[in-house]
Design a protein around this nucleic acid. Structure first.
Lengths: 227, 227
DNA sequence: CGTTGAGTTGATGGAACTCAAATAGCGTGG
DNA sequence: CCACGCTATTTGAGTTCCATCAACTCAACG
């Protein structure tokens, strides 16, 4: 964390995305985090939740340093470190995949606001439930799916999440490297490569390094997801 | 749903398991549900959450009637239909795997209690967060794991969940059939069979139809989970 | 121009899927 | 109580798909 400055939610262009409803009076700390740096570490006490403003944070669940697994890529507008609120300490580590900007919302402060506003509390529960559903989505992305189906689903999923946040679809950046994608999808990086080139051969996408373009979204979905 | 009777939480032997903390004044409806019958259907409006008292409810996520997937087996003492609170309608269908008894907690009533008691609201958020974490657990059970690792993990997971609720471990019932297990783990029922017999051959477990006994829990964990 | 790291491509073996047949459970009715 | 039939489960043989290991391309950088 290099820079850190305070900012009021009212002046943040994204605040209605992270907490729909009025959250007046809640001041956030905003941090800039360089590529490869750790935002929060597994084992840390969870005293805040994070909202991604730009970039991409990967959540890794490292039982050991040897066998780490990527459980999530948090995109701009999305919330992070929810799941750990139930526990004393975080079970995941958050690492910036590229230069990112993140809002830090102190749990203490949010909790107090919730206590005073039942409406906000309910709204927050809804967000929690949605986060839980997202975890299930990533499950259905993996299970019982062939490698090329996982890749196709992954791309479409990223695309959809970008669109929710208002960013134009089709053009994806894939700031994470092939190993991270492979890890996340439960396959090898070589297989990621092969699948991408195979999809490109079918002219469903075009690939140039980290820049991926979806050429035929319908075809992609019909041939690999619905099938 | 054949029978349905009202019951006060105070007189339920399990009430402190489902909502730790005082939830005085909340009356539940209790239902009996026969094997194979539907508790709630995908698309239904979500106006209640369920607590399993006995039996087992499988949650299936049916994109189509053709390609259904089992996303969870809810065991006695566990909560159901959390994830859907965020949406207008349920995205999963709950089906009884065997004769089961379930408490129905009206969301409306619970919501009102939360509004009056910040403590309860926080407690409930904690439960939501835990439910989200459970979804992740089932992800790490599947991804990047060989079939026999999934089976071993599945058995140990069931075992642990039974023990949390006070029921003795070691002896598992597996009221669901092989197809459901296979579906849940993202493999084929034939593979489930082969893995179970393989584990039995190594004298880590013993299998007789739906009755599975864990003979060597440590060995099971060391050889298939930690590996 | 050589080095380094990420990404791609090729060849091979093993694990899991598929299809098919055999067997075991289990409830039903004689 | 036993025979019967139905379904669930197990076992077998052949095939497909992905992991593995290794070589190779390409771009960035000193």
């Amino acid at each position: 964390m290099v820079e850190s400055r305070g900012v009021a939610c009212e002046f943040c262009g994204m605040w209605r995305l992270c907490f729909p409803g009025k959250v007046a009076g809640l001041r956030m700390r905003q941090v800039r985090i360089a590529r490869g740096r750790v935002l929060y570490r597994s084992g840390d006490r969870v005293d805040a939740i994070y909202m991604i403003r730009s970039g991409c944070i990967k959540e890794i669940e490292g039982s050991t340093a040897l066998r780490e697994t990527v459980v999530n890529f948090a995109l701009p507008g999305e919330l992070l470190s929810f799941q750990s609120l139930g526990c004393q300490s975080s079970r995941t580590t958050g690492v910036a995949v590229e230069v990112s900007h993140v809002c830090v919302v102190p749990w203490q402060a949010l909790n107090q606001l919730c206590a005073n506003s039942p409406t906000l509390a309910c709204e927050f529960m809804r967000l929690l439930a949605i986060a839980g559903a997202a975890a299930r989505d990533s499950l259905s992305l993996i299970r019982d799916k062939a490698a090329n189906q996982r890749i196709a689903g992954f791309l479409l999923n990223l695309c959809a999440r970008m669109q929710v946040r208002g960013v134009a679809g089709q053009e994806l950046h894939l700031s994470m490297n092939r190993d991270d994608i492979a890890n996340y999808l439960g396959i090898r990086s070589e297989t990621v490569s092969r699948c991408l080139t195979e999809l490109a051969r079918q002219e469903l996408i075009s690939v140039r390094a980290k820049r991926v373009q979806i050429l035929n979204m319908d075809g992609l979905r019909r041939r690999y997801v619905d099938a």
